[in-house]
């Protein structure tokens, strides 16, 4: 453990991180958002899921610093009278959860498919990659509309509210796995003819062990880089789905559903319900993308500036 830490301290990764102010700032913002989101009950002033905290008389109050604002609600309230800041923090938690969950799912599917296709080659490769092509040719919105419509019919709206989070994870996860599959397959094609793979076969290891233990770790650089971008994409996808009313229900709003619920009132002057969740969302996606850029530069030796 100590040794790993020593290694990390001497690594190029840390060195380049310290050189890069954008990366440091992004990580700071990201960590703040993550901690705030994941520890939502600690940081938010109210529990927006608790009906006892909601008073319809408080609905559509503007932020505290404006003329009509109340000090109790820093960023104002939404249409149902929930404290906007609290709702946003809880929404942030949902967005992060769905984003990461979807990436884990698509990463798992994509890595396994890409590895099998790349390493085994031949007919398996052709079959798996055509499936990936078909998957990519479906717009994920259409898939999402189908699945959630079927789901709501099958289980009813009430159950849908409970199962919305895993459902969104599955929808977004299924929509984007070919991105991983293609990347991993390309990397595996490059690795599998290297001599260490031959050496592993000569040692007498079986092909699963060679695939998962020898080839896979060598393709992880590219997986790591696209993962950052995919998290940002998944968060965006979730927001888009929710904005269209296909995502999180209004009782448990994510950032996307908050933006949507505010959007209906934006012309009646309640700009804050849309603006603040929007800023949160932009901030989250932006810092993840900036970190991803930095990571790509660090892990690509061709871009070393010396």
């Amino acid at each position: 453990m100590n040794r790993t830490w020593q290694r990390f301290k001497a690594s190029y990764l840390l060195f380049s991180f310290k050189q890069d102010k954008t990366a440091m700032l992004s990580l700071a913002v990201l960590l703040t958002l993550l901690v705030t989101g994941l520890l939502a009950p600690v940081f938010s002033p109210y529990d927006p899921y608790d009906p006892a905290n909601i008073d319809i008389m408080n609905s559509e109050l503007p932020p505290a610093w404006t003329q009509d604002g109340e000090a109790a609600f820093l960023l104002g309230t939404d249409i149902q009278g929930r404290d906007l800041l609290s709702t946003m923090i809880y929404g942030l938690r949902l967005s992060i959860l769905i984003g990461c969950g979807a990436v884990v799912l698509q990463g798992f599917l994509g890595v396994v498919v890409g590895l099998l296709a790349g390493y085994l080659g031949g007919k398996i490769d052709a079959l798996l990659m055509r499936i990936a092509d078909i998957q990519l040719s479906f717009p994920y919105l259409m898939v999402a509309i189908f699945i959630s419509a079927i789901f709501q019919l099958a289980f009813g709206i009430g159950r849908y509210e409970d199962l919305a989070v895993p459902l969104l994870i599955v929808i977004i996860g299924l929509a984007e796995w070919p991105v991983y599959a293609r990347t991993v397959r390309a990397a595996v094609l490059g690795e599998k003819n290297k001599e260490y793979v031959e050496a592993a076969r000569v040692i007498g290891l079986n092909r699963w062990r060679i695939m998962f233990r020898h080839v896979l770790p060598n393709t992880m650089t590219s997986v790591l880089v696209i993962s950052t971008i995919q998290v940002a994409n998944a968060v965006m996808s979730e927001a888009a789905l929710s904005f269209l009313g296909l995502g999180m229900p209004v009782t448990k709003p994510s950032l996307g559903s908050l933006i949507r619920s505010g959007f209906e009132y934006i012309f009646s002057g309640s700009w804050w319900i849309t603006l603040f969740p929007g800023i949160f969302l932009v901030l989250l996606v932006l810092v993840i993308n900036l970190l991803g850029d930095w990571l790509r530069d660090v892990l690509n030796p061709k871009l070393y500036k010396g």
């Binding site: 290297k194 260490y196 592993a200 020898h214």
Partner: peptide, 8 residues
């Protein structure tokens, strides 16, 4: 240089 797996 090539026969050892670089990540293990």
């Amino acid at each position: 240089m090539m026969t050892l797996n670089p990540v293990l």
